[in-house]
């Protein structure tokens, strides 16, 4: 199913503009992530698509060629996984998963068959008769997903589906979710504030800030070609090289670097992996912190700009704390982005 949103906005009763007029197209089978910090409007957008919020007049929501703008949530045929899962505590796992099918008034036998199929797909066979309260966080997450997809919704919506889990579990389930979503072969939109999650799961990421989508593209596009300082720092946490730009030269506290192009009216950003410790480097700074991360070290360096910067180091000769070091930044790796007005 193709989702199409045109000039959809949301103003709350108190005048807050939670969502500015937004256009969004999601193609059949595509998995799109809405990524942004809290309060950027991503959940509001998801809830509008679900039918849980009514958009301001003028907005239109299309499922294929059906205008669903005025359809209440219960008639939109969307599957939704809630942040808190919203599993019904008065029903067993099986009854939760079968509930949407029951609402469709399917014959009992069909419901049983479909529930068993979904239980199998989500590896929940052993828990079918359990009470919701007897499940772990990860199991609940899978039940929520199973319940949402059981009625074969036209569109699957996930609101921060992993945020209620602890860090270790979150990483395992992230990959599991990516695999499952592709197995279902369903059009899906999921909201997250975690860029790793977005990149691991989505075909396409729409980055949101202050009620609008600021950039949308594949994870690689967002990482390599961010179109704004916000996207650069939010996706892959690029660091702002604050200094004096003079044509294609950038003068910093700790030395000078060349820019890939004329940087007038721009700001320069760089990522940690593009800052190399190199005794012939043109920049100088002092080692503040060294953190061993197994495959590499993260080195915190002061004196290059007024803020500390971070470099990734994977050599053998580990820099010592307080040591004065020299650094290089590859010209081609510097991101030149229009400065905020």
């Amino acid at each position: 199913m193709t989702l199409n949103l045109t000039t959809t906005a949301k103003t709350f009763g108190d005048g807050t503009k939670a969502l500015l007029p937004t256009n969004l197209k999601v193609n059949t089978g595509e998995i799109v992530s809405l990524l942004g910090p809290s309060g950027c409007g991503k959940t509001t957008l998801l809830r509008i698509i679900a039918g849980l919020e009514t958009p301001d007049p003028g907005g239109k929501i299309w499922f294929d060629s059906d205008d669903v703008t005025d359809l209440p949530v219960e008639r939109r045929q969307v599957g939704m996984v809630f942040q808190s899962y919203a599993l019904f505590p008065n029903m067993s796992v099986r009854a939760n998963i079968g509930y949407g099918l029951k609402m469709k008034k399917l014959p009992k036998a069909d419901i049983e068959a479909r529930v068993s199929e979904v239980l199998e797909m989500c590896q929940l066979n052993d828990y079918a008769q359990r009470a919701i309260t007897a499940l772990s966080g990860g199991q609940r997450q899978r039940v929520a997903l199973a319940r949402a997809i059981a009625p074969r919704p036209r569109l699957l919506l996930l609101d921060e589906p992993l945020s209620a889990l602890d860090a270790a579990l979150r990483e395992t389930l992230r990959d599991e979710l990516a695999i499952l979503l592709r197995k279902f072969n369903i059009t899906a939109i999921f909201v997250t504030h975690d860029q790793n999650e977005a990149m691991a799961i989505a075909d396409r990421v729409a980055v949101m800030s202050h009620g609008e989508i600021v950039q949308s593209g594949t994870p690689e596009e967002l990482y390599r070609k961010p179109n704004s300082t916000f996207v650069a720092s939010f996706v892959g946490s690029a660091m702002h090289l604050a200094g004096e730009i003079n044509g294609s030269k950038l003068k910093l506290k700790g030395g000078e670097v060349s820019l890939p192009a004329d940087g007038t009216g721009c700001e320069a950003f760089v990522r940690a992996e593009n800052i190399q410790i190199n005794k012939n480097g043109s920049l100088s700074g002092y080692v503040d912190t060294v953190t061993f991360l197994g495959t590499h070290y993260r080195v915190g360096i002061s004196g290059v700009i007024s803020e500390p910067i971070t470099s990734i180091f994977s050599g053998n000769k580990v820099p010592k704390l307080g040591e004065k070091i020299r650094l290089t930044i590859e010209t081609q790796s510097i991101l030149l982005l229009p400065s905020k007005a």
Partner: peptide, 21 residues
């Protein structure tokens, strides 16, 4: 509210939500 939204997203009408949830 969320439990009811969950039921609504699965196709339950207000009365069904009241009765089942």
């Amino acid at each position: 509210k969320t439990l009811e939204e969950g039921a609504a997203s699965l196709g339950a009408s207000p009365w069904q939500r009241f009765r089942d949830i």
